[in-house]
């Protein structure tokens, strides 16, 4: 896995380019292939494009569904409406989401990668059994845990607080798995040996030397956890009743329920959705290299 795998992947990719010259599809076949892929790309892109266009429309234009008329461009208006709605609570939700997601993913990634590193570099009895427990955590979907978590939280008075959502989202067993894989790939044992010979402490070595090498892996874990927390819906829905603690996802859900009765809510829900999507799309486009390596590490044997 890991280092060799990545290297091998890179190599095979290069070699295959030459190999392909022999087995190239015919011109007709190529047309069909490109058409199919093009259709799929349209399928994935058009709804996002609709969101973009719809967020520039006022309510009436929205219901006329003439998205391409340039007559009434109300994006600015929609955005100012969005932030004025119900006393500007959307801004609050956005900040909450950022707090839950950025802070949660940062801490969660640190915790998971450190654990994964320890799994890779230290040996102790029953290590693999313990690791099996971690993997069991991957297999059990968090939605199943939400209800018992709620009951525990309400017994401890944590329910309907920031912590009731923040603490559970830190738990990222898959990050431990990735951390272990990355540690195998990126942190050679000799480096640690050298540090030990120099008399550096174990933790110092980790934070000064290993963590730097684990950087790309850390970013990958962070990015995936960021997405997961930003997407999180079930847990906040179970835990929170105070609207000022809501993340964007839950807030938009509540507004959407009003939109069904009061169509005035449609433009803010659409504009709010657009704003909520932007940071993640930006992160994924900018950090392409990292998440691809993360997916590869997880999937390639």
């Amino acid at each position: 896995m890991s280092a060799e795998t990545t290297e091998r992947t890179r190599r095979t990719a290069r070699d295959r380019r030459t190999a392909r010259r022999h087995g190239r599809p015919t011109l007709l076949g190529r047309g069909a292939v490109n058409a199919l892929v093009g259709l799929s790309v349209l399928y994935t892109l058009l709804p996002v494009l609709w969101l973009l266009l719809a967020s520039t429309k006022n309510r009436d234009a929205l219901f006329r569904s003439d998205l391409f008329s340039s007559g009434d461009f109300s994006l600015a208006r929609n955005l100012s409406d969005l932030f004025a709605m119900e006393g500007g609570i959307y801004g609050r939700w956005y900040v909450n989401s950022l707090l839950y997601a950025v802070l949660g993913a940062a801490i969660g990634a640190m915790v998971s990668v450190a654990c994964g590193y320890a799994f890779d570099k230290y040996r102790f009895r029953h290590k693999e059994k313990l690791f099996g427990l971690v993997l069991a955590g991957v297999m059990v979907p968090p939605t199943v845990l939400a209800l018992p978590l709620y009951l525990i939280a309400s017994k401890t008075g944590l329910v309907n607080t920031f912590w009731s959502v923040f603490i559970p989202v830190l738990f990222n067993p898959f990050g431990v798995y990735l951390g272990r894989v990355f540690s195998q790939g990126y942190v050679p044992g000799e480096v640690l040996e050298a540090a030990r010979v120099d008399g550096a402490g174990e933790l110092t070595t980790y934070f000064r030397v290993a963590l730097r090498m684990l950087g790309p892996g850390l970013v990958t874990v962070f990015l995936f956890q960021l997405t997961a927390i930003w997407n999180n819906f079930f847990l906040p829905m179970v835990m929170l009743s105070d609207q000022s603690l809501f993340p964007v996802s839950l807030g938009l859900y509540v507004w959407n329920s009003s939109a069904v009765v009061t169509p005035d809510y449609y433009p803010p829900v659409i504009a709010g959705s657009l704003l909520a999507v932007l940071p993640l799309i930006a992160a994924f486009v900018l950090l392409q290299r990292y998440w691809k390596s993360g997916l590869t590490a997880g999937s390639v044997k």
């Binding site: 969660g108 693999e128 690791f131 099996g132 993997l135 955590g137 991957v138 979907p141 968090p142 939605t143 559970p168 989202v169 830190l170 738990f171 990222n172 067993p173 898959f174 990050g175 798995y177 995936f224 956890q225 997405t227 997961a228 927390i229 997407n231 999180n232 819906f233 079930f234 847990l235 993360g294 997916l295 997880g298 999937s299 044997k301």
Partner: peptide, 16 residues
């Protein structure tokens, strides 16, 4: 999509 705290891309089935 939505609720995972772990991103869970592909993972080899066997724990060991």
């Amino acid at each position: 999509s939505t609720d995972s705290t772990a991103p869970v891309p592909g993972r080899p089935p066997g724990p060991a």
